[in-house]
Write a protein that binds this DNA or RNA. Structure first.
Lengths: 210, 210
DNA sequence: TTGTAAATAACCCTTTTGTGTGATATTTAT
DNA sequence: ATAAATATCACACAAAAGGGTTATTTACAA
């Protein structure tokens, strides 16, 4: 199994290289200080796994993940970084990173992570995994802080689907005047001036499911 | 640290109980064959961690997760099940499950999982973690398949914020007629009939960030 | 150079929206 | 039982939206 390393800190890079090279299972094919021309580096090395730092000068690891995964989706990429903010994390994941290990973890984590991706897993530091699962938590209740009634919600939903006042009236079997009255109340409750703004707010605040 | 177990298979339940009980760190406070009246069971046991099977007669583990997490979000729940289908997995995660371990994994996994949730992590079997990360990949698509131009996007965004045609014109320093023309083009490109529908579609398909 | 796409603008005309004001059932909660 | 929401309908009116058509300018690529 072959590994490529992208890490701009010389000491750390040497350390990782040594750590991995000392194993008889893995071989370090290349190590680099940034992701400049990364495609050719990957083509040359043909690594099974890439250890990717994020913060590197000129061409960083996020760029690297994006480029490599687009061309070689089968190459496993483990992010190895100090950053644990949501922004960078989810950007990397969306580009297809296979693992996300924080540098503050023991270096044995990195070694285990390599074995884990190779067996089809997705190694993550504890806090990272928690953050990822957090995103699946249902947005509790549509808290309806605006006191929109059921009828109003129904009408708002039809509006969202592009129904005109008249069509809404027909759909709900009520007069267009009633539709107007409902929408009037809705706009007032949502503190908006018009239908488009109401729709944007309703979707944005998850008052209705789309 | 105290544990409660929900598992209808008698043999397996005994095994888990023994496995955990043999440790001097953990104490099994209760073990049950289904999640009937689970709230009172949890109130009585006051467990730090719950091991939760999914497939149990009458009241299953999915129901259990939902009920317990709603009242006691701080109790850690590890799903321990044979099922690895997306449906059950993401349902449990949406209810707030903290870990998801497959029964086919070594039983030491379960033991490690308990330690991991207690230290704030989110233990998952390898395949599960991969499945979870997979969902972030397809989210990546701000790919403007409708060929909306920059100018059009800007105008669409103003519309979303409740600007009238006239206000958009003033904001962009163009005549209302031009605004009209742009919106006309936008509606055509998005295959919608009116502004509200366009806004709903634009937000829904992430054509613009809100 | 010519052609295509984007942005700009105007005119006409109909329908739709949004608001103000008022009123009457119907349901729900106290 | 009674008060408070909620849902219903109506009328008038100004403003806005949306559709059709045509045209000019700019920029960039074939």
């Amino acid at each position: 199994m072959t590994i490529s390393i992208f890490e701009d800190n010389d000491k750390l890079r040497d350390l990782i290289e040594m750590l991995i090279g000392s194993s008889d299972e893995f071989e370090v094919k290349g190590s680099y200080t940034n992701t400049y021309d990364i495609l050719n580096k990957v083509i040359k090395d043909q690594p099974d796994v890439i250890i990717m730092d994020i913060d590197m000068p000129e061409h960083d690891g996020i760029e690297g993940v994006q480029i490599v995964k687009k061309k070689f989706p089968d190459v496993k990429i483990i992010m190895h970084t100090v950053f644990d903010d949501d922004d960078r994390l989810f950007t990397c994941l969306s580009y297809g990173a296979d693992g996300y290990i924080l540098k503050k973890d023991a270096s044995s984590s990195l070694f285990n992570a390599i074995k884990e991706v190779l067996s089809g897993g997705a190694p993550m530091s504890a806090g990272i995994a928690t953050r990822v699962l957090q995103t699946f938590r249902k947005v509790e209740k549509p808290k309806n802080e605006y006191n929109i009634t059921e009828r109003e919600k129904q009408i708002l939903e039809l509006l969202t689907r592009g129904f005109s006042y008249r069509m809404i009236g027909i759909e709900c079997s009520i007069s267009i005047e009633t539709v107007r009255r409902h929408l009037k109340n809705i706009y007032h409750k949502l503190h908006v001036q018009c239908g488009t703004e109401a729709v944007a707010k309703a979707i944005g605040e998850r008052l209705l499911m789309l």
